[in-house]
Simulated scan of single mutants.
Amino acid sequence: MTTDITEFPQVPYKELRVTRSGPVLRAELNSPGTGNALTGTTLDELLALLDGLRESPEVRVLVLSGAGDDFCVGADRVDLESALDTDPRGAQLRGLGEKARRVCEALENTHAVTIARLHGRVIGAGVGLALFCDLRAAADSSRFRLPELALGLPPAWGGMLPRLLAEVGAARVRELVITGATFDASTAFTLSIVHRVVLAAELDTTVENWVKPLVRRPPEALRLAKLMLNAYAKAGRFMDGTLLDSHLFATALAAHRRTDPEAGPHR
């Protein structure tokens, strides 16, 4: 039986829908009118949820999905423009960027196995959010894009560039970032951005086929496996460049606004 979560921090969720069924926690981005664009509020709620997970070792699996027609169309442009209007030098933007980095870091490091259920548009920060999940399944009708350069931004949201390089490889990432071209779910599978591509009607079944054996795995072995996979994936890095991402993101957008006062981020 699925019940509203009660043992996590009592956050009055506005942009998430959170439910739990035994060891399985489900978090749905719940702003379908904006394509589940990620606001500061969304990031705060995700942080509260992930912080709560640290105190709940009995939760084995976290499924992340999106309400409505899309998984996530990226960072919310209204939030970004408002932050830039308030402080043209970018201090508030850096704050949003730091929240994004903390969310992605928490997704990567939580003891629970994280599963991204992807459909519709998966754009920019939406790609980044999905990439930090351990397993990713997409409907065959999903469409993906990294439009940051066209918006006057570096690919710096949440520390997704090193994750993308590790999962996909430098040559193909270079093409995705520089061209900003839209690509389909089949291409995302070929690039290892997703692990499964299925008919939209089969997406929930695919996710459940991952969930069922995971909840039977010995929890300590599962936790250690995640730690090992993360450690070996990062073994080749000499520094954590993601610590600079919020500064790069804010500096680039502020500079773009100065050179073109009418410019702003668009989804």
Rank of each mutant, 00 (worst) to 15 (best):
T2M: 05
D4S: 13
E7Y: 06
F8T: 06
P9H: 03
V11M: 11
Y13W: 11
E15Y: 03
V24E: 10
N30S: 15
A37V: 05
G40R: 00
L46M: 13
L47F: 06
A48C: 12
L49R: 04
L50A: 07
L50N: 02
G52C: 01
L53H: 04
R60N: 06
L64K: 10
S65D: 10
C72Y: 07
A75R: 04
L80E: 08
E81A: 14
S82Q: 13
D85K: 04
D85E: 12
P88N: 08
A91N: 13
G95N: 05
L96S: 06
R102P: 00
R102N: 09
L107E: 04
N109K: 15
N109H: 15
H111E: 15
I115E: 03
L118C: 02
G120L: 09
A125T: 13
G128T: 07
A130C: 07
L131F: 14
F132H: 12
A137M: 00
A139H: 08
S141W: 04
S142I: 02
E148M: 14
A166W: 02
G169S: 02
A171M: 08
E175M: 09
T179I: 07
A181C: 12
A181W: 10
T182Y: 11
D184K: 11
A185S: 09
A188G: 02
F189N: 02
H195W: 04
E208C: 01
L214F: 05
L214H: 08
P218I: 07
P218Y: 05
L224Q: 14
L227Q: 15
A231R: 15
A235E: 12
G236F: 09
M239K: 14
M239W: 14
D240C: 11
F249N: 02
A250D: 09
A252K: 07
H256C: 05
A263C: 00
G264E: 03
